[in-house]
Simulated assay, not measured.
Amino acid sequence: MTVSNDGESGLENQDEQGKRDKLIRRKQEWAAEGRLLTGNNGNRETDRLPPGQRLVQNWPVLDLGVHPDIPRDKWRLWIDGAVANPQKLDWAGFQALPQSQSVSDIHCVTAWSRYDNRWRGVLVRDLLDLVKPRPDAQHVILHSYDTYTTNIPLAEFADEDVLLATHWQDEELTLEHGGPLRLILPKLYFWKSAKWLKRIEFAVFDKPGFWELRGYHNHGDPWEEERYDD
């Protein structure tokens, strides 16, 4: 029997969707079981490694299997919602914003942590100066090119160490790690640092995102071990 290219693509798509669904079910089961929870609270002032975490030297790749590859000439970042000065930036426009560097640790909800990551990109504080959130803005909803979403309190999004990153360890972010642009928010579990950013929405009301609607904590503080919904 001959299978057309369209048929092959359809089978591949079904296979990828099956893998994606299986991963989502497994992660939801972890949340329901409270997997990896230690019941201990850490102290971010004294503890570099949050409770239940293990230190790694590599950078594991964890996602839903979709890596949206957007050409730079097609790429856009929308910044809108409860702001006085909404923006639609192309790649050149984003690169024209003030560029900064930072070093931070990252902590994944699947219990790995990596120290001393060097980032380059645009500090969120510089972005806020540009778009000017309205006084009633309290939340930020991140939208990715793969349709992923996650939510963050504006107060933590505005922390001095939060960065819209284009580079890691002095190299451009690879596609598998969220390039060309991802958020880096060191104080929360890494699922909050959305990959493949497409839109930053400032909101008056909270909007739980993809994992927050599937059993994961709405906030995600590693030192409080906020892995899963109560």
Rank of each mutant, 00 (worst) to 15 (best):
K187Q: 15
E172Q: 14
E45G: 03
W78M: 06
Q53L: 10
K207Y: 11
Q101W: 08
K198R: 15
V61L: 09
D116A: 10
D116V: 03
L127V: 10
W191D: 05
A137C: 02
R125H: 09
W168I: 14
H167G: 03
K88W: 06
K198P: 07
H107T: 03
W78R: 13
A82D: 04
W191I: 03
E156H: 15
A111N: 14
E16C: 07
L197T: 05
P71N: 00
E29A: 13
D129E: 15
Y145L: 09
H67P: 00
D221L: 01
A155S: 15
D221W: 01
L128M: 09
S9V: 11
D170I: 06
A92S: 13
L181M: 03
C108D: 15
S113E: 01
G121Q: 07
P133E: 04
S193V: 06
W211L: 08
Y148Q: 05
L183W: 06
E16S: 13
L130R: 14
R25I: 06
A203V: 02
L62S: 11
E212H: 03
Q53E: 10
N41H: 04
L142D: 04
V162W: 13
M1Q: 10
R48L: 02
V83Q: 02
D80L: 01
R44D: 01
N117S: 09
I200M: 08
T166M: 14
W168E: 14
T46A: 05
W30P: 02
H139D: 12
Q57T: 12
V103E: 14
K195N: 01
G93C: 03
Q99N: 09
A137T: 01
F157W: 12
W91N: 01
Q101D: 13
L173T: 04
G39N: 00
H107F: 14
L23N: 07
Y115A: 10
P98Y: 11
S102T: 13
R25A: 15
Q17M: 11
F210P: 00
L173D: 05
K74T: 07
V131K: 06
A165S: 15
P180Y: 06
R125P: 05
P98N: 09
A31F: 06
Q57N: 15
L164P: 03
R214M: 04
P98S: 10
G65S: 00
R25S: 11
H139I: 10
K74E: 12
R199F: 08
N85P: 03
K88T: 12
Q53G: 04
H67V: 01
W211K: 01
R20F: 06
E8P: 00
G81P: 08
L183H: 01
N40V: 09
G121P: 13
E212P: 04
L127H: 12
I200H: 07
T38R: 07
Y145D: 06
